[in-house]
Design a protein around this nucleic acid. Structure first.
Lengths: 154, 154
DNA sequence: TGCTTGCTTGGAGTGCGCTCCAACTCCGTA
DNA sequence: TACGGAGTTGGAGCGCACTCCAAGCAAGCA
């Protein structure tokens, strides 16, 4: 994919600045998780630098170097995961990006579907919040008037 | 909340009206899940009715009869689970109810803590929503001007 | 030279919340 | 009396998203 480079390259290839440990610090993910993301294909072509770096620097056992680009992607992945997007869907999304422009519409659709889910989730949470509020109010009332509340288990 | 009893008993014991199948229909839970909830202690003393119903109707192999009270509890559990309260916490809560009035304050605290988490969750989701919106907008822009977007995987 | 630290790998293990299985028992209808 | 359907049990299995393990390597330092 590219020749032995220490520094810069054709723009779509960038030897990263960050070791896995630094990425752990910046993202809050564990090194395990970072490697796992790579294994499953959620994050490909993390550049390498190290002892077996013959040819393209991607030999077995060589060390990962994450680029700013990689960090951006991880941040995006993090947001999506935080909103409950399944890893499988992220994978589909990542795959589509790799396939290029033809998948644009599908990617957008995936995001729009997900947005809808997030919106629904928010409104679910808000309605549950009302129930919790009510319940807490019940406890507060009972504390004021040493009375009994309705709930019980059995 | 519910006092609609067909067959009445000493007040804290009520033979339910609903078979497990009916509860499945009403709650959307599976029979597996209902039995599992009972096994783990999230729901105790579901009354029984059946062949081996000697004495208290709770012999092995006899059939469950859920009361309106049980349905109320399941509904509450459902709300809490929907907001992401771990089953373990629900279990603690259920256990505290069993222990009676002395646990009131602790129960209230548990709910208040959970409320806080739900609120945080909602605001997380809302901020992620902005990111998703932005991303979708990027796709929409690109569609308009056939340009390239910043994101890629590797 | 030995020791520590940080990293590498493939594969196995974990925790959660169910979900299913095998083998059985009743009940109602024909 | 036979049969289908709904229910019972303890325990095993599953899918997800990690999380950890064992064994090894390379660099830096005393």
């Amino acid at each position: 994919m590219s020749a032995t480079q220490q520094v810069t390259t054709p723009e779509d290839y960038e030897v990263g600045k960050y070791s896995i440990g630094e990425v752990v610090e910046r993202t809050g993910l564990t090194a395990h998780t970072l490697r796992w993301y790579e294994r499953i294909g959620l994050m490909r072509h993390v550049s390498r630098q190290g002892p077996r770096a013959g040819g393209d620097g991607n030999g077995r056992g060589s060390r990962r170097r994450y680029s700013d680009h990689d960090l951006d992607w991880l941040e995006f992945v993090g947001k999506m995961r935080l909103t409950g997007m399944p890893v499988a869907d992220m994978l589909r999304y990542a795959e589509m990006i790799r396939l290029g422009d033809e998948t644009r519409a599908a990617r957008r659709e995936l995001l729009e579907d997900h947005r809808e889910e997030v919106r629904n989730r928010i409104s679910d949470l808000q309605s549950c919040l009302l129930v919790i509020d009510y319940k807490i109010e019940t406890y507060a009332d009972a504390e004021r008037s040493n009375d009994d509340e309705h709930s019980q288990v059995g």
